[in-house]
């Protein structure tokens, strides 16, 4: 049935199979490349639409990258039809979640008010920590319309203004940590557009180290 193996035909068979399969894959890769790239861009844009009011530009063309606390995050700029700044969508994260890392996208208006927050990825416990997701629990809604200058990004137990999810203090604290980090990134970036923000950098920095100080 199967052919007798000789060194020559074994080598030839393996070469032929790998060659044909590479060619096929290269073809499929070409075909799907555009669609995959489009999906990536759409995912980012859909996220930004969720956290910022209506904008006219294409924020995924206006990305600035920043290296923060050991990782690179992206900041997306949204403007209206006249090019005026509406707000920034800031990627942020924390490594202090119960299940490890939590990634968020936080939308800030030009005056520093939090417009909305979307959870991009997390591995918190289903039924407990996963309530940080706005689709599961109103916890993250309380941040809407708050300005971190006056709204202290810590759970009440630690002396802040955030109502923690009951029985889920670790996840709630981690969420505050991520939002405080987002605000710090936002303030540093905003100095480019509005020099007044320079005076807020110190406070925003302190807030990040404070958000999870009591552990």
């Amino acid at each position: 049935m199967a052919k007798v193996s000789s060194f020559k035909n074994m080598l030839l068979t393996l070469l032929a199979t790998t060659f044909i399969s590479s060619a096929l894959l290269a073809g499929v890769h070409q075909l799907t490349k555009k669609a995959i790239e489009k999906v990536e861009v759409e995912k980012i844009n859909a996220g930004i639409k969720k956290v910022l009011p209506e904008f006219a530009n294409n924020p995924s063309d206006n990305i600035s990258k920043k290296f923060v606390d050991g990782d690179t995050v992206a900041i997306y700029k949204a403007t209206d039809s006249e090019g005026k700044l509406i707000g920034l969508a800031v990627q942020t994260f924390t490594n202090k979640g119960y299940g490890g890392r939590i990634s968020l996208l936080v939308g800030f208006l030009a005056d520093g008010t939090i417009n909305n927050i979307d959870v991009i990825a997390h591995s918190e416990t289903p039924g407990l920590g996963d309530k940080i997701d706005p689709r599961k629990h109103p916890f993250s809604i309380q941040f809407q319309g708050k300005n971190p200058d006056t709204f202290k990004l810590q759970v009440r137990k630690d002396g802040g203004d955030v109502d923690a999810i009951s029985a889920t203090t670790v996840s709630s604290r981690a969420f505050c940590d991520a939002v405080a980090r987002a605000y710090k990134i936002f303030v540093e970036e905003m100095v480019k557009y509005n020099p007044n923000f320079a005076s807020k950098i110190q406070a925003a920095n302190d807030a990040v180290s404070g958000a999870t100080k009591i552990n």
Partner: peptide, 8 residues
């Protein structure tokens, strides 16, 4: 730039 060959 042939990351699609990863699995193979």
């Amino acid at each position: 730039q042939i990351k699609f060959m990863q699995t193979i």
